[in-house]
């Protein structure tokens, strides 16, 4: 996984609450067996008409957001299905940071496995960012090490669990990390702690 320490980029505001993963990546694109190439299908039903032309009523199609890499969303961003195709699509499209007042748990977790930094901020602060990015071409600098978002005018700090922070800063392969605890897992299985659960063999 690509580490992420600092990131500067153009902000795209998506002022909707409860953006579910069915909207982020509709089901017809979940049949692929690869991890790559989902960016072209991001927000597919909102971005495209049935004949495949761009919908003018969806803001991401506005050329002023071309090259945006910081997505600012509404409450409960990423709710619904556990499909990791959602962060894959967001990342493949070019987004590195997603900011929202609240995230759905599974989506939030999935971001860290893919080098995307999800940042939860109080709603009034998100509203402020949303407003700025709607009005003009708006860039922010995100510093994960210092846990700060800076637009040259406004400086906001954010919280993140230290485990998640380390994962992103180092770009760790989590499985490789866990395998260093293999003896503990062996030991747990030997002790057969807890309710006796039969295997299925």
């Amino acid at each position: 996984m690509e580490p992420i320490k600092q990131h500067s980029g153009l902000v795209y505001p998506l002022d909707r609450s409860n953006v579910d993963t069915d909207q982020i990546i509709p089901k017809q694109f979940l049949k692929r067996i690869e991890r790559q190439g989902f960016g072209q299908f991001l927000f597919y039903n909102w971005r495209f008409n049935e004949d495949g032309t761009l919908r003018e009523d969806f803001s991401l199609n506005d050329p002023k957001y071309d090259g945006a890499s910081v997505l600012v969303g509404g409450e409960n961003f990423g709710c619904g299905s556990s499909r990791e195709h959602a962060p894959w699509a967001i990342q493949d499209y070019g987004f590195k940071v997603v900011i929202a007042p609240s995230f759905a748990d599974i989506f939030y977790n999935n971001c860290f496995k893919n080098g995307i930094l999800p940042i939860q901020l109080p709603k009034p602060v998100v509203d402020q960012l949303m407003e700025k990015a709607t009005k003009e071409k708006y860039e922010v600098k995100v510093d994960l090490e210092k846990q700060i978002i800076d637009d040259g005018d406004l400086e906001v700090s954010f919280d993140i669990q230290s485990y998640h922070k380390e994962m992103l800063l180092n770009g760790w392969d989590e499985i490789a990390v866990t395998l260093t605890y293999e003896d503990k897992i062996d030991q747990y299985e030997k002790q057969n702690k807890g309710v006796k659960t039969l295997g299925i063999s």
Partner: peptide
């Protein structure tokens, strides 16, 4: 509980997950 594909891989490999 539901998990993403990276976690599916993690459970396949380690039969465990990091969870708060």
């Amino acid at each position: 509980f539901g998990i993403g594909t990276s976690e599916v891989e993690h459970v396949l490999a380690t039969q465990s997950l990091w969870q708060a």
